[in-house]
Nucleic acid binder design. Structure first.
Length: 586
RNA sequence: GCGCCCGUAGCUCAGCUGGAUAGAGUACUGGCUUCCGAAGCCAGGUGUCAGAGGUUCGAAUCCUCUCGGGCGCGCCA
């Protein structure tokens, strides 16, 4: 309909240009919008306002000329000029009815499109370090990333969902050391756990399974582990130096193979836990990309060499620096430390180079907002490598701040004081969690009131929408109990009698769904879908209260059942894209 | 100090990316069911869109500055 109106207006402009009323050199972009208020018709265009200046003419005069030049169309009931010069299109009441047939025919495909033309997009999200369970902050990234990926897939992109596993690097070594120390404690040793170690209970669990699998075979005297280790922070020393020394000692004592055993025990346990968590949360991936693989296959070295060849690398104080300031970054960044170790940033350069090499038309990174300072240097690196940094979109998700009993819940992975995603899911359910997480724009801070979310009170908009779905199911159950039947084809034949205002509103809302999907996907804004679904549910509940569907008049009954079944279908489709279930009963 | 994000009704947030009288939920008050699920519906009002300039036919939306809040500014990841 929109494209049809656009064509009508374009033709009108051409007509006026041909007769010299409008300057021929104008090439206006015709904008057609849904009206916010039905008093303004169904669609409106600001074309006359746009043309006013270049045509040196009053907007309302142009509007009148345009309207006069528009070819008649049977779908159009009338055209009005309003306000400063808007052209308002009023569609025939029956113009919308066909959407009901479309929905029932297309089923769960309704709303999908080929806008993306199967262009390939990679979406990388969550990618939390496997050093502990996912917490509620990761949950938002998971829900948001999954929704964005599903939305893009729904409008015809070929989406590749990826998790970058940080299975290399110092944090993982700290985890391995933490596991080993807990293991020693299980063997009966007494020691002071490092301030910088991972203190969560899950570390005990990993140590316990290590102990079950290997008994005391990996044991070394505590004195040996702490030999020549500088004091920890509580003892007046440096916490970083302390833990690094413990890692080094653990490595030496265990040797390469056994150290890897401990390391992998931690990695596999936690990664397995993360994968299960996401799976249960309805978040699925096409690929789990290992950071370690980048160093194993020398991709990191290769990336560093490419950077060196680009001429934007120099040496200073024994370290290798990337001149990211040449590309707008605030300062230059180290890629190889003076001890020969490449930095996390170096891995990230290799990883992003790898992503682009894989030939995606577009690469989307979803990061926690605390990483925003990282964006310029990654883009700088891509530019230096001769890649197009604009192929990379970085979406930043603000943290969800938890409130419990009216107080902010402090979170720190290290200290182990955090609410896990799993706990949240158990408390409020997957549906509410998935929906709540994407209700707000990603760059908006989110206050997550645990008490409210936990309480079974129904301030929760997800129930409101699910209830609309369950209500439709219930109507059809009633239909059977009353031994009535639904003739879908007859309903389709009789759609023209759906002329009540509630029916019109509902039908128009249904017709908006594909447009909502498209804008929500293009702008990476799943919250638009949540708002839409709430409005749709509202239209349905209003209709439900105003009219009875199971009436004796079979023509009316069938048509109305077609309408509410179409509504149910759209709710199911929309909730499905958000990872929320559409229940038959509440 | 520098950079990024945010500031809209008492509270939580939308505002279709520059359009018409700035809207929802929640909270508060009152009403609606012999009838398909009342987890619902209807009615009632609230705004210095943080503030000040600027851009134009038109600004909550774009630009500049100020104020307030969050985050970031490691040879950590």
């Amino acid at each position: 309909m929109k494209t049809q109106l656009t064509k009508l207006l374009n033709d009108a402009v051409a007509t006026l240009q041909a007769e010299g009323t409008l300057p021929a050199e104008l090439a206006p972009e015709v904008m057609i919008e849904r009206t916010r208020d039905r008093a303004h018709g169904d669609y409106a265009s600001n074309l006359a306002l746009m043309l006013a200046k270049p045509a040196r003419c009053k907007p309302r005069e142009i509007a009148e000329k345009l309207v006069a030049a528009i070819d008649p169309d049977e779908q159009l009931q009338k055209i009005e000029i309003a306000g400063p010069g808007f052209i308002n299109f009023f569609l025939d009441n029956q113009a919308w009815h066909s959407v009901i047939d479309d929905i029932l025919a297309q089923g769960d495909l309704y709303g999908r499109s080929d806008y993306g033309k199967q262009r390939r997009i990679q979406v990388e999200f969550v990618s939390a370090n496997p050093t502990g369970p996912l917490h509620v902050g990761h949950g938002r990234g998971a829900a948001y990333g999954a929704a964005v990926a599903d939305l893009l897939a729904a409008i015809g992109y070929n989406v590749h969902r990826e998790y970058y596993v940080n299975d290399a690097g110092r944090q993982m070594d700290i985890l391995a050391a933490s596991v080993y120390l807990r293991y020693l404690e299980l063997c009966g040793a007494t020691l002071t756990f490092p301030a910088n170690g991972y203190q969560g209970d899950y570390v005990w669990d990993i140590a316990a399974s290590l102990h079950r699998a290997h008994g005391e075979a990996l044991q070394h005297p505590v004195e040996a582990v702490f030999q020549d280790v500088p004091a920890d922070e509580p003892a007046g020393g440096d916490r970083e130096a302390h833990i690094d020394a413990i890692i080094a000692r653990t490595r030496t004592l265990l040797g390469q193979i056994r150290y890897r055993l401990v390391f992998d025990e931690g990695l596999n346990a936690i990664l397995g836990n993360i994968r299960q968590d996401l799976e249960e949360f309805g978040v699925r991936y096409d690929e789990w990309f290992s950071e370690r693989s980048l160093s194993d296959n020398r991709s990191v070295e290769a990336a560093i060499e490419r950077l060196q060849r680009s001429g934007h690398v120099y040496e200073k104080n024994g370290a290798l620096w990337f001149m990211s300031t040449d590309f707008g970054d605030e300062k230059d960044r180290v890629i190889v430390r003076d001890n020969g170790q490449s930095t996390y940033f170096a891995s990230d350069i290799a990883y992003h180079a790898n992503k682009l090499e894989r030939g995606y038309d577009r690469v989307i990174d979803i990061w926690g907002a605390d990483h925003h300072g990282y964006v310029p240097r990654v883009k700088a690196a891509l530019k230096a490598l001769g890649d197009d940094p604009d192929r990379l979109d970085v979406l930043l998700v603000q943290f969800a701040v938890l409130y419990r009993g009216g107080e902010k819940v402090q979170m720190s992975t290290r200290s182990g004081e955090f609410v896990t995603l799993r706990e949240l899911r158990r408390e409020v359910g997957n549906d509410a969690a998935r929906f709540f997480y994407v209700m707000r724009k990603c760059e908006q801070h989110m206050d997550f009131d645990l008490d409210l979310a936990k309480s079974q009170s129904n301030d929760n908009p997800v129930y409101y929408i699910q209830y609309a779905h369950a209500r439709v199911r219930s109507v059809f159950r009633q239909l059977q109990e009353k031994h009535l039947n639904w003739d879908r084809d007859a309903g389709s034949e009789g759609l023209s009698i759906l002329l009540e205002s509630h029916e019109q509103d509902l039908i128009i809302s249904l017709s908006r769904y594909p447009e909502v999907l498209e804008t929500a996907a293009i702008h990476h804004e799943p919250h638009q879908l949540t708002h839409y679904l709430r409005e749709l549910a509202n239209d349905f509940h209003t209709y439900y209260n105003a009219h009875t569907f199971l009436v004796d008049d079979t023509k009316v009954r069938n048509a109305r059942l077609n309408l509410i079944e179409a509504t149910r279908q759209v709710i199911e489709n929309g909730l499905g894209l958000l990872g929320v279930s559409a229940p038959d009963t509440m």
